[in-house]
Design a protein around this nucleic acid. Structure first.
Lengths: 342, 342
DNA sequence: CTGAAAGCGCTTACAG
DNA sequence: CTGAAAGCGCTTACAG
């Protein structure tokens, strides 16, 4: 009685299947792994036995023998001291598409959220838990990026989204093209005085690229570009809010606003409304990231979105690439029209 | 040359460490796993050798021997035919806190997104890839839930959030309490004619519980409860929009609206604005889920939010519980005050 | 086409 | 306290 309580049912092994099918263990292995060198009849017999016994091959044992893990590790970096609730939804979308991309290539995804130094861990490949690791998440957690960048040096097989280091193996949006898209759309909506909001010196390296895209596009359309507006704030949303306050207080002239990310744009939309500045009539607004929240803002936020599916694929490909290989690293972007530009 | 191209560096094993430290493999194992029965000096020597060689224990081999995986599988069910981009952000939050809860208990999280029947897979425990599995995601994918419910019958060690089956091993919000919170807050804001929007017969079983909470609370405060408003639509957002249209077209009288989920409330907010019905002045609105998008809607959406951290913990605990155990299954909820109620 | 045997890299009784 | 040996459940040369 007490013994039936604590004993889990012994898992069925390939030996059990072999016995039932009246073949050897090797044959079971071959039959179930789809080896060519097996009679159709034998295969059928084995499959039947496996089915009857509810047998599933022990992935760990198989992997150990084969030397591959069939797994990719995905670590999502959070802000120090904050839980997964504080993760920017952008990274959740990216996580989702990276998992999907892994599955597409037949890999499992081992996911972890890491925010504090005590919990940093990146040696999945050395520990043979994964064949590669992709790191995504906030660029603001300096300690985390230092850690993972060091990991990459010794371990290899890592791919980054949002790394503050230009020399690491990153995958990024085509940010310059995004800048162009935004500026052209704003101009088309009638804007002449277009301001870029975001810190080009941010640890989020992509911000600078977006600013450069803005610069190039402004020049191309013959408009005068301005300095980037840099505002402070605990998070992106309040940075966006503060940027508007800053602009208004300085009596700056603007009829188009391009934000380095949607979270800032969303904060800005609030502040704009609070100050009675009409969007899109007084000013056109475009963000970057394609956040779902922008669908419900007032007005809904027009934004530049990276191709998430492609981003996931590139991240996985890069993490799995062997020494010499270097897959594409730029993810195409497109404009999502909502209602914050005329 | 070509050989150096293809050979990955041979991973260092515990035998290498043993050799370097001048001890046996057993001793390495004991030293590194924190066994009591080891001299401090020996342990130090082994640790040093391991460090110098960059050794990490092969998790797969260790797990195979130990018989545990140290992993929990998390499957996120999506709408049939749609990718991870279409996942309700609520489930991303839940995914995040479930991963965090797993990590807290020292488990890794193996995550997969499953939407189409061809990709359904739940035998992680049988395959020895995980010690338990938690399933979350849309209740609308009937085929998926049928599949996983069947899995649970044979496999055990599964925990569900959002299952359309009342008899499965689920974890849910304290929905009745949520209903009470919403009604009381609406009443406090001056509402008298409070309508519940959502289908009590929905595959999302929690909707019915929220309706029941509404019913009980209405009675408790001495107000007349109405039938639930059920509207059609491809997704929750349009269902919310349509509910308002329905209500307005029927000239219904209402000054308080309680939605079965935030996505519906968000759609409703749009439709309300389009019809010139002022929130919160003409009508108070409360949703359910704590979606981040509600922070940016006009007005920001007051909502009932489950304790995500607790939800993750309960899900993990339940998936890991052995035969007889039955951990708590109700997650407490609280009201997030934003601005859609006076 | 199939089987017997070795071995993937650990951990854990079993001795000493 | 430490070592030699067995074994976790597979897969894959190696024979036949």
């Amino acid at each position: 009685m007490s013994s039936s309580d604590k004993t889990r049912p012994r898992p069925v092994t390939s030996i059990d299947v072999a016995e039932r099918a009246g073949v050897s263990q090797s044959t079971v292995s071959r039959a179930l792994s789809g080896s060519e060198t097996i009679t159709e009849a034998t295969r059928r017999r084995v499959e039947l036995a496996a089915e009857e016994l509810g047998y599933q091959v022990n992935a760990r044992a198989a992997g150990l023998r084969r030397g591959e893990t069939g797994t990719i590790a995905i670590v999502v970096i959070g802000r120090d001291g904050q839980g997964p609730a504080a993760i920017n939804p952008f990274y959740y979308s990216l996580l989702g598409s990276t998992c999907a991309a892994a599955a597409e290539r037949g890999y499992e995804a081992l996911v972890s959220f890491q925010a504090q130094p005590e919990e940093f861990f990146g040696h999945y490949v050395a520990r043979r838990q994964a064949d590669g690791v992709v790191v995504i998440g906030t660029a603001t957690n300096q300690a985390a990026w230092d850690y993972f960048t060091a990991c990459a040096k010794t371990a290899g097989r890592m791919a980054f989204w949002g790394s503050p280091f230009d020399d690491s193996v990153w995958v990024r949006s085509d940010n310059r093209d995004g800048g162009r898209l935004a500026v052209e759309r704003l101009v088309q909506g009638g804007a002449q005085h277009i301001v870029f909001v975001g810190d080009p010196a941010s640890s989020q390296r992509q911000f600078r690229e977006r600013y450069e895209g803005y610069l190039a596009a402004m020049e191309a359309v013959g408009l005068k570009a301005g300095e980037a507006v840099v505002s402070s704030g605990a998070d992106r949303v309040s940075q966006g809010r503060n940027a508007i306050a800053q602009l208004a207080d300085a009596d700056a002239r603007f009829d188009g606003l391009f934000f380095a990310c949607d979270a800032m744009a969303l904060g800005a939309l609030e502040e704009l409304a609070a100050r009675g500045i009409a969007v899109p009539d007084d000013v056109g607004v475009i963000g970057f990231d394609g956040l779902g929240s922008g669908e419900f803002s007032a007005p809904p936020l027009t934004t530049v979105e990276p191709d998430f599916a492609r981003a996931g694929q590139l991240l996985v490909e890069t993490a799995l690439a062997s020494e010499g290989e270097r897959p594409a690293r730029r993810v195409p972007v497109h404009l999502i029209e909502r209602a914050s530009v005329r």
